[in-house]
Design a protein around this nucleic acid. Structure first.
Lengths: 151, 151
DNA sequence: TATTGTTATACTCTATAACTATA
DNA sequence: TATAGTTATAGAGTATAACAATA
């Protein structure tokens, strides 16, 4: 900006958002071919590391409300990718577990995520990529942002 | 990631999105106090530079569909921030123009945007900030992304 | 016929709040 | 009462497609 008030392109945050949106949209198109959305992928990936987990844990991990997890889970159940069971020990509790098909799908989706990241950052010099990653993580740390990034 | 498939935190794109979301949400809270959303701010800012502009121009500039602009414009009109007029030369065309109140509001919102950007990037060394900006713009250029970032 | 814009419809994402069942 | 989860509702954001008016 030279004079007057700042414009849309005068903020780093806006450029960041722009790049971020492009990356997310690109990834969304890739996973769509596998029949899932980005948010669904995030939940599936979060559940992949354990046999079964309560919705509340997934909500905390992904920085979403329990209601949002319920809705996402409903959709994954409808797609045959998730099973919801009652907890035998606590009548209120439920557990979410990926189906066998979902367990086969997650690595494919992870590969798409790798591929997507490489498309945007792969030809940056390794040093620069590392610096960017460090910078982003430092902002997260400094601002005390919790939650794992979900998409 | 050490072994196995990549996780949610193993992609730069995910960290980028995380930071980007935090910045956007922070900005959204600020502009909300002024009674507008981030998308509304973007449209207002885009219209600020000219006396009046057709919706199609705003759509192109912001990378949105004409239908989306109509919807946004309807809302801004409802808030008394925008006026839609028929084009005297072309019966199909319309023009969008900010109201006087909107013209007073835009600089306030721009100041909030400045403030928000400073909160996230202000205490980075100038060199590092410049490097980040250059990097983001290079990605935009390399990928041939058009449209001004809108939020 | 082509173009401008609006309207209708739909879907994702997400939140808040009320509610149910259990503890 | 407190907690786990679900359900209901709402609204932003966005897209596609059908449509109306005009060129």
């Amino acid at each position: 900006m030279t004079v007057g008030i700042s414009g849309l392109g005068d903020h780093i945050g806006v450029w960041l958002r722009f790049v971020s949106n492009a990356i997310s949209q690109s990834f969304a198109r890739k996973v769509e071919e596998k029949g899932v959305t980005v948010a669904e992928w995030a939940l599936m990936r979060a559940l992949f590391d354990s046999e079964a987990a309560p919705p509340s844990k997934a909500a905390e991990q992904l920085g979403m409300t329990r209601g949002a997890i319920t809705k996402l889970a409903d959709r994954l159940i409808g797609k045959g990718l998730l099973i919801r069971r009652a907890d035998p020990d606590d009548g209120r509790a439920r557990t979410l577990a990926l189906t066998a098909r979902a367990r086969r799908l997650v690595p494919e989706l992870a590969a798409l995520a790798d591929e997507n990241d490489a498309a945007f950052f792969g030809d940056l010099p390794a040093k620069e990529r590392a610096r960017l990653e460090r910078l982003l993580k430092s902002i997260v740390a400094r601002r005390g942002l919790k939650h794992i990034p979900i998409d």
